[in-house]
Amino acid sequence: MSPRLTLVQGDITEQEVDAIVNAANSSLLGGGGVDGAIHRRGGPEILAACRELRASHYGKGLATGQAVATTAGRLPARHVIHTVGPRWSPTEDRSALLVSCYRESLRVADELGARTVAFPAISTGIYGWPLDDGARIAVETVRQARTTSVTQVRFVVFDERARAAFAAHLGETAP
Rank of each mutant, 00 (worst) to 15 (best):
Pro175Met: 00
Ile12Thr: 07
Lys60Ile: 15
Thr148Trp: 02
Gly65Ala: 11
Ala24Tyr: 04
Ile20His: 02
Val139Glu: 00
Ala24Asn: 13
Ala162Lys: 01
Pro86Thr: 11
Tyr127Cys: 14
Ala138Cys: 13
Glu104Tyr: 15
Ala67Ser: 15
Val117Thr: 13
Pro175Leu: 00
Thr70Met: 06
Pro86His: 09
Arg40Ala: 14
Gly10Ile: 08
Arg107Phe: 10
Ala135Lys: 10
Thr64Cys: 15
Ala24Val: 09
Pro76Glu: 03
Glu104Leu: 08
Val8Phe: 09
Ala164Trp: 00
Gly73Asp: 03
Ala165Trp: 05
Ala19Phe: 02
Ala164Gln: 07
Gln15Cys: 12
Ile12Gln: 04
Tyr127Trp: 13
Gly128Ile: 13
Gln15Phe: 14
Thr151Glu: 12
Leu28His: 04
Ile38Asp: 01
Ala165Phe: 09
Thr173Ser: 10
Phe166Trp: 12
Thr148Ala: 14
Val108His: 04
Ala109Trp: 02
Thr141Arg: 06
His39Gly: 08
Glu140Gln: 07
Gly31Glu: 07
Pro86Arg: 02
Val139Ile: 13
Gly128Gln: 12
Gln144His: 11
Val34Ile: 14
Val153Ala: 13
Ala77Tyr: 06
Ser100Glu: 08
Arg94Ile: 09
Leu106Trp: 03
Arg136Val: 05
Ala167Met: 01
Ala23Gln: 11
Ser123Gly: 05
Thr83Asn: 07
Arg74Ile: 05
Gly10Leu: 07
Tyr58Lys: 05
Thr116His: 09
Ala55Cys: 06
Arg136Tyr: 15
Ala55Pro: 01
Ala24Asp: 09
Glu14Arg: 10
Glu16Ala: 11
Gly10Arg: 15
Ser95Tyr: 11
Arg4Gly: 15
Ile137Glu: 01
Val139His: 03
